[in-house]
Design a protein around this nucleic acid. Sequence first.
DNA 1: GTCCAGGAAC
DNA 2: GTTCCTGGAC
Length: 286
Amino acid sequence: MKQIYTNTSTPTPILPTPLELELFCIQIWNFYRNSGRNFVWRNVEDPYKVVVSEIMLQQTQTARVAQKYPQFIELFPSFQSLAAASFLDVLSAWQGLGYNRRAKFLHQLAVRVVTVHNGKLPHLPEELVKLPGIGPNTAGSVAAFAYNVPTVFIETNIRSVFIHHFFKADEYIHDRHILPLVAATVDRLDARNWYYALMDYGVMLKQLHGNPSRKSAHHVVQSKFEGSDRQIRAQIIRELIAHPGLDFQSLQHVTQATEERLRRIIASMEKDAMIFSHDQRWSIAE
DNA sequence: GTCCAGGAAC
DNA sequence: GTTCCTGGAC
């Protein structure tokens, strides 16, 4: 394999030989056997727990999820209990994980599963992606981890593994060039552990060689958090959890944002159905 | 400074 | 193609 996928005008994908793929799989399995990670959300039979963990793990480090996940499951142990809870309670339990809109999506997902799917999470990715907060990647991972379906999906660690092994001399690698390799190597009988193994191997690669996914065509440098609208939004959420029915002046005092900026941010949060106003006072949405 | 089991809405 | 969040590890 050498410099095959760099020409984007006339892609001539050449798969590695069966032997190369076989050796690759053996290497991943060996690593997993010796150095695989263990998490409380792994090898669980309850699809609900898999969904909660996968939504939490979107753009959030495993250590942080490990800290928050157990209490969340204790508070809301099932789709039914989560669906029946208020958004305020769900959002409160979410604090510390970041990206608060995920809490909204997860809450709505639980309602949909209970009301539309009779409390049972669909098995297939094509159905899973129709649920709020679940895109192609999470649909694939949920199907694999919850039901051991040999799906084909990519997330940041998997991406790193394939870039490191099969695209050493390439740059700006598109996922469409990686997916055939994922499909060719997925374990038909043990997809669940195979993807655990790939993720663990990817984490190891990043520790050892830096992040191979920086060569991905999809890699984006994260914008600064300090001083951003995101920071203001987070402050507003925390404040309205503690003090429902707060007026504009109070929010301005807490956030120290200009009036124009704060009005704009509040409007966007109302549009996201994160908050709502009543008589010029704001609260967490329901 | 970089990174984190991304998706929705614009 | 941007915007949403968090805070510690590195």
